[in-house]
Amino acid sequence: MKVTSFDVAKAAGVSQSTVSRALRGDPSIGAETVRRVAAVAAELDYVPSERARDLSTRSTRRIAMVVDLDNPLWALLVRRLYDQLAERDYRLTLVAGHGDTQNIESQVAGGGVDGVILSTVSLDSSLPALLRRRGVPAVLLHRYVEGTELDSCVADNRAGGAAAARMLLRAGHRRIGALLGPATTSTGRDREAGFRGLLAEAGVELDETLVRYGRFDFDHGRESVPALMEGAAPPTALFCANDIIALGAMNSAHELGLRVPGDLAVIGFDDLEQAAWPTVALSTVHVPFDDMLHSAVTLLGERIGGWSGAGRLVIHPVTPVERGTHGPNDTGRSV
Rank of each mutant, 00 (worst) to 15 (best):
302 E>V: 10
129 A>G: 04
289 F>M: 12
102 Q>R: 09
304 I>Y: 02
201 E>I: 00
74 W>P: 00
218 F>Q: 07
94 L>Q: 12
35 R>A: 11
80 R>A: 11
63 I>Q: 07
276 A>R: 10
261 P>H: 02
329 N>K: 12
96 A>H: 12
69 L>I: 15
27 P>F: 13
191 R>Y: 15
301 G>F: 08
18 T>F: 09
301 G>D: 13
171 A>D: 11
225 V>I: 10
214 G>N: 11
294 H>K: 14
220 H>Q: 11
122 S>V: 09
26 D>W: 14
283 S>D: 01
185 T>S: 10
111 G>V: 15
7 D>P: 03
311 G>V: 00
280 V>S: 07
303 R>P: 15
226 P>R: 11
79 R>V: 00
260 V>T: 08
35 R>Q: 03
320 P>G: 04
307 W>G: 14
48 P>R: 09
315 I>C: 14
66 V>P: 06
293 L>P: 01
27 P>H: 13
8 V>K: 08
285 V>S: 06
1 M>Y: 14
42 A>H: 13
237 A>S: 05
133 R>F: 13
273 E>N: 09
145 V>T: 10
310 A>I: 04
76 L>K: 08
317 P>H: 14
64 A>R: 02
7 D>C: 01
97 G>P: 03
330 D>L: 10
291 D>S: 11
19 V>S: 05
168 L>P: 04
308 S>T: 13
72 P>C: 08
188 G>M: 00
10 K>G: 08
292 M>I: 12
303 R>S: 11
200 A>E: 15
130 L>S: 08
101 T>Q: 12
245 I>D: 00
117 I>D: 07
104 I>L: 03
249 A>C: 09
94 L>W: 00
200 A>R: 14
201 E>R: 14
35 R>K: 12
226 P>G: 10
304 I>R: 02
257 G>L: 06
117 I>V: 15
127 L>I: 07
11 A>W: 06
244 I>V: 15
128 P>W: 02
322 E>T: 06
294 H>I: 10
268 G>Q: 00
187 T>Y: 13
91 R>W: 14
12 A>Q: 03
272 L>V: 09
111 G>K: 05
305 G>A: 10
245 I>L: 01
37 V>Q: 05
290 D>V: 02
241 A>M: 01
244 I>M: 11
249 A>F: 00
36 R>Y: 11
328 P>R: 13
130 L>A: 04
296 A>V: 01
306 G>I: 00
119 S>L: 01
1 M>C: 11
281 A>P: 10
318 V>K: 07
225 V>C: 06
239 F>N: 02
81 L>D: 05
164 A>P: 01
71 N>G: 01
59 S>R: 06
59 S>C: 09
244 I>T: 12
316 H>K: 08
41 A>M: 03
108 V>E: 06
300 L>M: 05
182 P>C: 01
301 G>V: 11
40 V>Q: 00
163 A>E: 08
9 A>N: 04
86 A>C: 13
92 L>S: 06
209 T>S: 15
223 E>Q: 14
219 D>M: 07
110 G>N: 02
276 A>W: 08
5 S>C: 03
209 T>E: 12
270 D>Q: 08
85 L>N: 03
130 L>P: 04
7 D>I: 01
313 L>K: 15
82 Y>W: 12
109 A>T: 04
277 W>Y: 06
